[in-house]
Simulated assay, not measured.
Amino acid sequence: MTALLGPPPPEFLRRSTETSRYWNEHGQWHGPVPLPPGRKFESLTGTLAGEDEGMFLNFIQCVLCWIPEERVTTLQAYFHPWLRGKGS
């Protein structure tokens, strides 16, 4: 997630005392293994193109969020156009 989203926001870090094992108060990683280099969501699309690529990227951005309340629900994800094979 960090490679795609960047460091977690302070709100995420404040939710658990365990985050201090991996992140400092500024959202910088200090965990036991190095983080992979940053990537863009577009690097996940593989051979997708056009509308399929756009819908896939939208789906991934809806489900991959640091703050759980910002994510779509499982039902919303299930009915996302990309999973249902429908245009946006």
Rank of each mutant, 00 (worst) to 15 (best):
65 C>K: 15
74 T>W: 10
42 E>D: 05
13 L>N: 06
60 I>M: 12
46 G>E: 03
19 T>I: 13
19 T>Q: 14
51 E>W: 01
66 W>C: 05
65 C>D: 08
60 I>N: 00
15 R>W: 10
74 T>S: 14
34 P>W: 05
28 Q>E: 12
76 Q>Y: 01
78 Y>E: 02
65 C>R: 15
87 G>H: 09
62 C>K: 06
56 F>L: 10
68 P>R: 11
39 R>L: 14
8 P>D: 03
10 P>S: 04
24 N>R: 11
54 G>E: 15
80 H>I: 05
76 Q>C: 00
84 R>H: 08
7 P>E: 01
24 N>F: 12
67 I>W: 07
50 G>A: 07
49 A>F: 08
87 G>L: 07
7 P>F: 00
11 E>R: 13
2 T>S: 10
54 G>Y: 09
60 I>R: 00
81 P>R: 08
61 Q>D: 04
59 F>K: 03
10 P>V: 02
29 W>T: 13
50 G>M: 04
25 E>C: 07
75 L>M: 06
60 I>S: 04
81 P>F: 04
63 V>N: 00
83 L>M: 06
53 E>I: 04
23 W>E: 07
52 D>L: 06
75 L>Q: 13
38 G>D: 04
29 W>M: 07
54 G>T: 13
38 G>Q: 03
85 G>R: 02
84 R>A: 03
69 E>I: 06
38 G>C: 01
3 A>C: 08
6 G>Y: 01
62 C>D: 08
82 W>S: 01
48 L>P: 02
19 T>N: 15
38 G>L: 01
70 E>K: 10
43 S>K: 10
26 H>N: 14
35 L>N: 05
8 P>Y: 10
53 E>W: 03
45 T>E: 09
29 W>H: 09
48 L>E: 06
26 H>L: 15
76 Q>V: 02
73 T>I: 09
30 H>R: 14
28 Q>P: 04
71 R>Q: 12
64 L>Y: 02
18 E>Q: 13
3 A>Y: 01
65 C>S: 06
44 L>D: 02
2 T>Q: 09
36 P>N: 08
7 P>D: 00
33 V>C: 07
36 P>I: 05
73 T>C: 12
81 P>L: 02
57 L>K: 00
28 Q>T: 11
21 R>A: 12
29 W>E: 11
57 L>F: 04
67 I>E: 15
79 F>T: 03
46 G>V: 05
86 K>Q: 15
35 L>P: 07
48 L>N: 01
1 M>R: 07
36 P>A: 12
68 P>A: 11
41 F>L: 06
38 G>H: 00
56 F>N: 09
11 E>G: 11
31 G>Y: 06
53 E>H: 02
79 F>Y: 11
18 E>T: 14
69 E>Q: 09
30 H>A: 11
50 G>Y: 07
26 H>A: 15
32 P>D: 11
85 G>Y: 09
6 G>H: 02
53 E>R: 12
12 F>S: 02
84 R>N: 09
50 G>L: 07
42 E>Y: 01
75 L>T: 10
66 W>N: 05
37 P>V: 10
10 P>Q: 00
46 G>Y: 09
69 E>M: 03
